[in-house]
């Protein structure tokens, strides 16, 4: 069973370095992470790898908690704060493995000629989707800085994890997110100037348009 302690009790016990408190916290983290992995079954992670993955994430979590316990502001349950650190450690590792097995970024730094894995169900719709994509592609090429474009392509189009994009560029994750945000804002402004709405673009790519319509 889990330890039902108050934040004050946890803080007092962990700060005093009581072995029983650290062991209880460790058990709760392990239980939570294992349960998450078994229920979510992330692709590219073999079930046999779950215990080692959880063990590594738990170890990293407890080290972080030891180092940062003094920064806990008491705005949540202490255990939820700890689980957030654990989830971050686990997901970072899962994303890193997924990326290593799967992907690469097109070194050309250009948007793809066609971004989707599939095709439209009929030739007319496909022609409209390709025309719409050509416009969006040209805006990506013309309206974004090389920095914004490179990060947007790496993370959004090639699904490279934010932390890995940040590490490779030697910048923070927040700086990566800011570049993506700025890219979206620039694209939004450029699309709106051309009178193109979300509804129109979604209708085309969801295939909910009638003959002769387009953007």
């Amino acid at each position: 069973m889990s330890e039902k302690r108050t934040n004050a009790e946890w803080l007092e016990a962990l700060s005093a370095d009581r072995e029983s408190a650290w062991a209880a916290l460790r058990d709760q983290v392990v239980r939570g992470l294992l349960s998450y992995l078994r229920s979510s079954r992330p692709v590219d992670v073999d079930e046999h790898a779950f215990p080692a993955l959880v063990d590594d994430a738990t170890q990293e979590t407890l080290l972080t908690v030891r180092a940062k316990l003094g920064t806990f502001r008491g705005e949540s349950r202490l255990t939820t704060w700890v689980y957030r650190i654990a989830v971050n450690a686990l997901l970072t590792e899962i994303r890193r493995r997924r990326w290593e097995r799967r992907s690469s970024v097109d070194p050309s730094g250009s948007p793809p000629e066609w971004p989707l894995e599939d095709q439209a169900p009929n030739p007319e719709l496909e022609a409209q989707q390709r025309e719409a994509w050509r416009l969006i592609k040209s805006l990506i090429e013309q309206e974004l800085t090389a920095h914004q474009r490179g990060i947007l392509l790496a993370h959004v189009f090639h699904q490279k994890p934010l932390d890995l994009v940040a590490a490779d560029l030697g910048i923070s994750r927040d700086a990566v997110y800011k570049a993506i945000h700025d890219a979206r804002r620039n694209l939004r402004a450029a699309l709106l100037v051309k009178g193109i709405t979300l509804e129109a673009t979604l209708a085309i790519f969801e295939g909910k348009i009638g003959p002769g319509s387009g953007i």
Partner: peptide, 17 residues
């Protein structure tokens, strides 16, 4: 990624205690 983290945290917090 942050949405995935929230979903994971909800599941972990529910099952850990």
């Amino acid at each position: 990624e942050c949405a995935e983290a929230c979903e994971a945290l909800l599941r972990v917090a529910r099952s850990a205690e």
